[in-house]
Design a protein around this nucleic acid. Structure first.
Lengths: 222, 222
DNA sequence: GAGCTGCCTTGACCTAGATCAAGCACTAAT
DNA sequence: ATTAGTGCTTGATCTAGGTCAAGGCAGCTC
């Protein structure tokens, strides 16, 4: 368990002594595809670290449509903030694929933050990072065309994995479309056009970027 | 200065002893309407508390259009997270009206967080709150009609100021439209229609809610 | 290998809201 | 009083992307 915990950025610099009480209180959870982990407004008894697979965090509109807010992949944590502050979950969470999580009781987090100064700092850093992500999302959601959104989304992958030119989408296309604030049809059409223009190529659910500069062009042009 | 500082939620429970070093290092800043306080990517040497007036935080698109991300009013702080983590500012900030701020050096914040446990907690709480706000924004930006956005925006005021039925808009209509991801024209048309339907009434830049239930209806209907 | 089932694509249409273009109301300066 | 500036409204178009509907294409199970 310690090994798994240390896989997360939140915990990677911790000593065994720091980690022991957290590890002792946590437990491993396995979810089948589609399993609902918690609902919006549920009390937050745990926060979670994704060991394997991925989770989708979403909300429901009054009419019952789903809007995907975040897709959480391996190594990332979620619901830390609400757990710490003892607030109800602000979103629904369900498994996008068969997924393994570590569930860490909120109380343990609260206790540890008081004891371990570094943990508080790390939490602040992690929240701050998340806020930056949201700023970007807000920015693109509100004034980008479909093409810009898709180009930006694909480029985000290249940035983190350096000179890899091939991308495996982390969820179904419909999910990604929702994340981007698009209809699945529109997402499909945009990808088609990019293929047509020779900017990308698709094989199975792998996407190959033929020209990242052309893609940047598309992202930055109205 | 101490008095002003304690006006902010971030500091309201602090003892004089806690506050003294912060107060000593901070200084008061007055901005004329439209003054640019910092740019995106500037190093974050201070974070800020709004004493009087209001600030707009925004970004620029590649084509140079502005997108308002947040409007910060009296009593609120901004740029705490980046100051703490010593990252560059992620947005532009300029004064929406003649505005007074307290500028608190980032270094002081970093020092104090290490010393004062409660401050770290408060910061976590404040960031978490901000994240919740962003979740809402993302939600509405991506799948609400213009009418839903405006109704939701107005209702947000009623929620915080209880049974006040009259709202003074915190910025020009064009700014608010941008915050909501709308064109000024569209914002204006939506308000007109609401007046036509007898849901609201407008006088100067005061908005009177005639029927908050009708407004809720509008917010929750596609 | 026949038939499901779930994803994805493609086409035809339609509508919300952006854009373009005047004009109006109020304020501030000359 | 006249002009000019700024924010707001209103009307007339245009268009990106949403919606509806019809297949196509795996990968399953039986």
């Amino acid at each position: 368990m310690e090994v798994l915990l240390r896989g997360a950025p939140l915990f990677n610099s911790f000593t065994d002594a720091d980690l022991a009480p957290i590890s002792a209180a946590s437990r491993l959870v396995s979810l089948k595809l589609g399993t609902l982990l918690f609902r919006e407004r549920d009390p937050s008894q745990h926060f979670f670290l994704v060991i394997k697979g991925s989770m989708r965090l979403y909300r429901l509109t009054p009419e019952g449509k789903e809007k995907v807010i975040e897709i959480i992949s391996q190594g990332q944590t979620f619901a830390e903030a609400v757990a710490l502050l003892n607030k109800p979950y602000p979103v629904y969470a369900s498994a996008l694929e068969p997924t393994e999580l570590i569930a860490i009781p909120s109380q343990v987090l609260r206790d540890q933050v008081l004891v371990n100064q570094e943990l508080a700092f790390k939490m602040l850093a992690s929240l701050s990072l998340r806020i930056h992500g949201f700023l970007n999302d807000i920015h693109t959601l509100s004034l980008a065309t479909a093409q810009q959104k898709v180009a930006g989304y694909l480029l985000a992958f290249l940035e983190q994995s350096e000179d890899e030119q091939t991308i495996r989408l982390p969820a179904t296309k419909a999910m990604i479309a929702s994340r981007l604030g698009l209809q699945p049809e529109t997402f499909s059409r945009v990808l088609s056009k990019m293929k047509e223009q020779g900017v990308i190529q698709e094989d199975k659910n792998q996407i190959l970027i033929l020209s990242s500069s052309a893609l940047k062009q598309l992202r930055d042009t109205a």
